[in-house]
Amino acid sequence: MATTRILEWLGRLYIWLLLAFLYLPIIIMALMSFNVSPFYQLPFEWTTEWYGSLWQNDQLIAATRNSIEIAIITTVICVVLGSAASLALFRYEFRGKKFLQALLFPPIAIPWLITGTAMLIFFFGVGIGRGLFAILLGHVALALPYVIVVVSARLQTFAPELEEAARSLGANQWQVTRRVTLPWIMPGVIAGGLFAFAVSFDQFVVSYFLATPGQTTLPVEIYAAIRKGFTPEINAVSTIIIVVSMALMLLTARFFKFGGEK
């Protein structure tokens, strides 16, 4: 018994060490964004100067606006197309359904480097070229499978008899969908939408290959700045990004259980 207690205690300690490993760099980055020294010199002196100078940086602001706009449009398109596809995959039986479901995995499993360069080649070849529209095309395609998977998972808990009942009470297909099915899958749709937003907002690799100097997103801009040299402004904007994306995921977790626990 004593050994069990000690082992359990060691286990807990271990988890906290892992959490320290995961969070310390992020916390340090956040702290340094409030430090006076632009070269991250200690001792620490408090300032909000870098956040202030963010507002003077037109390039960063434009990139941020692009990122937010693309993420919102991606979310809307993915939620609509993804929910429709999930419903079809759930409701109907037809040949080739397994194949269509399997097709959702290449976009998730293939490294973004390959997908991104392939998009660059193809979009160039067909005349779409690079820029914000190409980035949007890519983001939707990357996020769509996630939305379909999440909404489909929610649909698994749905009882088709409910649709039958509504239909037998005289509701037409649209009414059944709007009044019965959609309310039930709403948590999945919201979680899927938040996923889509996060995938788009955090996406770097694919955006990087599709961006042009004038039409770029925030992560691409940050990468360029990091490679040019460190600036505390990048610290500040990175801190904002990480807070936003973590808040988004906490929100998603309210609608979607990751652990699969009932």
């Binding site: 770097f204 940050i222 990048i234 990480i242 994306s245």
Partner: peptide
């Protein structure tokens, strides 16, 4: 699920 680039940075 947070930004990978920023975490590397």
């Amino acid at each position: 699920w947070s930004n990978g680039l920023v975490r590397i940075f």
